[in-house]
Design a protein around this nucleic acid. Structure first.
Lengths: 228, 228
DNA sequence: AGAAAAAACTGACAATTATCATGTTTATAA
DNA sequence: TTATAAACATGATAATTGTCAGTTTTTTCT
């Protein structure tokens, strides 16, 4: 099993602020596991006794409403740490984490994290910066949801996907989401998302090859996102 | 001018994790100021060189869209610390802070905060807890915005106002917001908010005396919020 | 490969919400 | 205390978005 000291993923998250000794401790207590597409890492209401560090794959963090609708609040990829927030506030998980594709995650028990947090200010501040950044993003989502139309939000979603998950060698978005997931990211009905995506195709803003989607007219899409 | 050590407000925020010496430092560098209703404490895009600790009054944290709509992301009251997030990530302010009623705030320069963050893990963790809690609330708002109707969100808003700001001696909500502000909290058009509030009055869910609003049927309002 | 299931799509329609126009009431200030 | 502005209110209408019902396409599994 890999040692955290050598894990490239660490560069992306707050673990980089840990000392050699702390990392060793994390390394000794962590466990690595594979999560298949569609599997749940943790569910809303679960008591978490550690955090999950994403080494590979993508997870959606979402909340299910009583009427069966499910809002995706965030997509977490390589380097992200899941469950951090709940562990810090010592509350049960507020969202559930489900694998969007096959994943590899490291589970790090709560104590290893909390001890470092309480003794290493560098680490605490680093975690703080990450959470503060997440908070900013969440605030932006709130504003988008109330000030933009579904069409604008879908256009933004494609741009977001390209910027954050990149493209494959053929220019298609590296992260392929189902129409339902896209609908749940922007907070609309699946059918509405499908219709708008079809329109985008007809307008030449995007192109599709099977499930794969590519941005064909970045400027055009940007215009739509800003509100034609 | 008051000394932070004796400030009751401190009980509500992360400053309580500071040592005597740190508090003294904060106390020596802080300045107190009065902000009149409607005045801006800081605006979106401002570079903040400190945080604002609310001693009295309420501030709305909001973002204005190009088309003139303004989304209130959060209402901050006694004990809240404004601008904390931006100071931590060293970014310009993401939201603007405007006084909803007359306020008294203490400005604490950035350095006093950052130095303590970097040296006192207790303080850092305490701030972390606060921001983590804010993040949870923001996530909940995202979910509400996408899964609930305007009517449900307005019902929730009244319940939220009563729970977080209390009632006056006559049972009216202690915090009086204009219909426009309520609309901006729930993310809808002012006219829509007005209509729904009128309906609530007709249904006996709330009652109004001038600008003052009181919850008349808490259970009924709860039902509406949950989705009749 | 072929059956079954899941996802994508389309149309018709209903519900929700926004917009515009305008009148009324309430607050603010000279 | 009025005038003036701001906030509140209501109707009519349009635009957006959701729901339901059904078809086609794609994926998955044996």
């Amino acid at each position: 099993m890999g040692r955290c000291e050598n894990c490239i993923i660490r560069q992306f998250n707050s673990l980089r602020a840990m000392s050699k000794e702390e990392l060793k401790r994390v390394s000794d207590t962590k466990t690595t596991k594979l999560v298949k597409k569609g599997e749940t890492i943790f569910g809303e209401g679960d008591k978490l006794n550690g955090v999950f560090c994403v080494r590979d794959g993508v997870s959606k963090l979402s909340k299910l409403s009583p009427n069966g609708k499910d809002q995706i609040v965030k997509l977490a990829t390589k380097g992200a740490v899941l469950g951090q927030r709940s562990v810090i506030t010592e509350e049960v998980a507020n969202l559930s984490a489900i694998a969007v594709n096959d994943m590899e995650v490291c589970f790090v028990p709560k104590d290893a994290i909390m001890d470092s947090l309480n003794s290493n200010p560098n680490f605490a501040v680093e975690v703080l910066r990450h959470i503060a950044h997440d908070l900013k993003e969440a605030d932006d989502v709130i504003v988008n949801m109330s000030q933009k139309t579904v069409k604008q939000r879908i256009a933004e979603a494609f741009i977001y996907l390209e910027e954050n998950f990149g493209k494959d060698k053929n220019g298609y978005l590296a992260l392929t989401l189902s129409r339902e997931d896209i609908a749940n990211v922007v907070g609309t009905a699946t059918e509405s998302a499908i219709r708008i995506i079809s329109d985008f195709k007809k307008l030449g803003l995007i192109k599709a090859f099977g499930k794969k989607v590519a941005i064909a007219d970045r400027n055009g899409l940007n215009e739509v996102a800003k509100g034609s």
